Amino acid sequence: MAKEKPTILVVNDDGITAPGIKVLLEEMQKLARVVVVAPDGPQSGMGHAITIGKPLRLDKVDLYPGIEMYKCSGTPVDCVKLAVDRIFKDKKPDLCVSGVNHGLNYSINVLYSGTMSAAVEGAIEGISSIGFSLDDFSHEADFSHIRSYISSISEQVLNNGLPKGTLLNVNFPHIDKGIQGIKICRQANGNWVEEFENRVDPYSRDYYWMTGRYDWVDRGEDTDVFAINNGYVSIVPTQFDMTAHHAIQELNSWSFDIK
């Protein structure tokens, strides 16, 4: 009896017409039956936001031949939730892939990223999940150097699965750097030092535009930031359990004087 072909859910945060999602679904077609559920417009920086208090729309679209596709009025996480509940119903997909994001999602960016939050939601649902991001914000970004890596990494996850509660955060260097190989990394310790420029609109009203710089604190050579800066694909095993387990013993030593 022939083995049933696996199914892959493809999502993103740049919107259903973004070039990155086209690259991702084309590579996934080589491995499985593909279903795409993506926001109807850009949703970058939405993190793990969900839609509450207003209707969600889910409409079938015909953008690419032979691909079952839906556009969603909600966030990237809404897309995963609706896909699992309304499209897949009793049988979850074998893999959830998110991206390819235009721009990196390394270090602290993972907390803000809609791309990674969609993958996190897939993992919460018990689906093996991967978030893919490229160091290129351009709408005309060149993805040619990462296609084979996308396919290989996804195939490995399909074949081997992932530990429970774990997903992969995969970042690719810009095409100008080339690719030296793959590094399994930890998330770099860093943060954004924000600045807000005060500007004035045509109606003489103040508004603010967020700018700033990334501060890489630890400079570790085992981090995702180091890998990308040196032309490597970074793969960070990521979890959604945010418990600081190392702090539990210390907190248990405190004396809480409740009156």
Rank of each mutant, 00 (worst) to 15 (best):
L158Q: 10
W192M: 15
N230E: 06
Y214Q: 08
V120L: 10
N229H: 14
K92N: 14
L158P: 06
S117H: 05
S128Q: 05
E121L: 00
G45F: 12
Q156F: 03
G99N: 12
A18N: 03
G15L: 00
A247P: 00
N160I: 08
Y232L: 05
W254Q: 11
N109P: 00
K60C: 07
A141S: 06
P163M: 01
V37P: 04
F137G: 00
N105G: 14
F256P: 02
E26Y: 09
I150G: 02
S253K: 12
N101D: 11
K91V: 11
S152K: 14
L24A: 03
I146N: 01
K92I: 07
A32C: 08
P202H: 13
S133P: 01
V170E: 00
L162N: 04
G220C: 12
T51Y: 10
K92V: 05
L167F: 13
T7E: 08
G231K: 06
N171L: 01
E250N: 14
D78W: 13
V84R: 06
H102C: 15
N252S: 10
M69C: 07
G99F: 05
F196K: 15
N230S: 06
E4L: 12
Y112Q: 09
D215F: 14
A188F: 04
Y232T: 06
L31Q: 04
G74Y: 11
S151E: 13
V97P: 05
S107P: 01
K92Y: 14
R219K: 15
C185S: 08
P65M: 07
P173Q: 09
I50L: 13
G66M: 09
H246I: 14
Q239E: 08
T238Y: 01
N109A: 14
P93R: 06
I258Q: 02
R57Q: 10
H174Y: 09
V84W: 04
T115F: 03
V61R: 11
D85E: 15
N191W: 15
D94L: 05
Y112F: 08
A123R: 00
D241Q: 08
L167A: 07
M242G: 00
G220D: 13
V100G: 03
E68L: 11
G41C: 11
N12H: 04
V100W: 02
G231M: 07
T223R: 05
A49N: 13
A118W: 13
I182Q: 07
P65T: 09
V157L: 01
C96K: 03
E250F: 15
D224P: 10
E140D: 09
K71A: 11
I179V: 14
I67L: 15
Q187F: 06
V193F: 12
S129H: 02
G212D: 10
R199D: 04
G45H: 08
V157I: 06
H48T: 11
K81Q: 12
D135W: 07
Y207H: 02
I182D: 04
K54A: 07
M28E: 02
A141W: 09
D59A: 12
G66F: 08
V157H: 01
K22S: 04
P237S: 09
S154Q: 02
E26I: 08
Y232F: 15
K71V: 11
